[in-house]
Design a protein around this nucleic acid. Structure first.
Length: 292
DNA sequence: CAAACTCCCTGTTAGC
DNA sequence: TGCTAACAGGGAGTTT
């Protein structure tokens, strides 16, 4: 699933292929993908505009569109989204949701199997980006800031790190990886972490994100959007050996999210309020099932 | 106000 | 082997 490094890769890919080109028209194949669009139809709004800049903010791909009135087009890839640039003569692919035809005979294809991805078209970027927290690879992201953001909270560290309004761009993979590298249990209440944890955690987050960015994202083999070379140490490696201590990697659930960790490198906090459910054990009955 | 829960989706997989 | 139901997950919206 695309997180900051994968989105950064997408942005770099798009930068060299679409910056400076103009949009001829757009076709919406799944209407709900367009989550924000003031005024006329999406296609009418973007037709004729020039893509002057492609950038990233958190997990969002941003495009500045210069036209009759300036617009910003943001794309959130969510779970399964990808943006590709293909010759316009190529057929529509399964799961293509939006196609943007460009002036050079190519087109941007927003492909999104699970339909969670969204596009936001707006004249004011702040409307989309306002709620996002600090960029974790920026100089602004200091140990002091991290501590100030989190230390006063009672919630577990993992859901706090996933909160995009605090830090923008971390997802399940890189949070698990960062907590492992810093030896912090994901259920540790933020307020229980020692002073030096914040320095370590900031360092782990930046190291891992930088490494993943330079390797073009995480290698899954099955992902359409990923395809990078970053190899997780614990994420998705339940039952395998911890690279640091050779202990067994466990999988638990934290805040409804699958969570991977090494229990000997990341000792359990004393008074975890949540139950720890091991995948390998007897499966707990799932108490929440929707009714419709 | 912070935190937790619900729902959106479909390909994959566990379980029988 | 074939089928079904559970599962996965980011974040907007809702509830506690």
């Amino acid at each position: 699933m695309p997180e900051l490094p994968e989105v950064e890769s997408t942005v770099r890919y798009l930068k060299e292929r679409v910056e400076g080109l103009s949009i001829e028209r757009a076709v919406i194949l799944w209407h709900r993908t367009i989550a924000l669009n003031r005024g006329k139809s999406f296609s009418q709004q973007v037709a004729g505009a020039t893509i002057t800049e492609v950038f990233r903010r958190g997990k969002l791909v941003g495009m500045r569109l210069a036209g009759a009135s300036d617009q910003f087009l943001f794309t959130h890839l969510r779970m399964s989204g990808s943006l590709d640039v293909l010759p316009s003569s190529f057929d529509v692919a399964p799961h293509d949701r939006v196609i943007i035809f460009l002036s050079n005979g190519k087109s941007i294809r927003f492909n999104d199997t699970r339909k969670f991805g969204r596009m936001y078209l707006t004249p004011s970027p702040d409307e989309v980006v306002r709620s996002l927290g600090v960029e974790p690879l920026s100089a602004e992201f200091t140990p002091e800031l991290l501590q100030r953001l989190l230390a006063g909270r009672k919630r577990a560290i993992k859901p706090a790190l996933l909160d995009q309004s605090l830090i923008a761009g971390l997802g399940n993979i890189y949070v698990d990886e960062s907590l492992w590298r810093s030896g912090i249990h994901p259920l540790s209440p933020c307020s229980s972490l020692p002073e030096d944890a914040w320095r370590s955690l900031r360092r782990s987050i930046q190291e891992i994100l930088s490494e993943a960015v330079s390797l073009l994202g995480t290698d899954f083999g099955d992902g359409v959007v990923d395809g990078g070379m970053y190899r997780p140490s614990v994420y998705g490696r339940t039952g395998e050996r911890c690279p640091r201590c050779s202990g067994e990697i466990s999988r638990i659930v934290v805040g409804q999210r699958g969570t991977h960790l090494c229990l000997s490198c990341q000792p359990k906090p004393r008074k975890a309020r949540h139950r720890v459910k091991l995948t390998r054990g007897a499966k707990a009955p799932s108490q929440k099932r929707r009714k419709r």
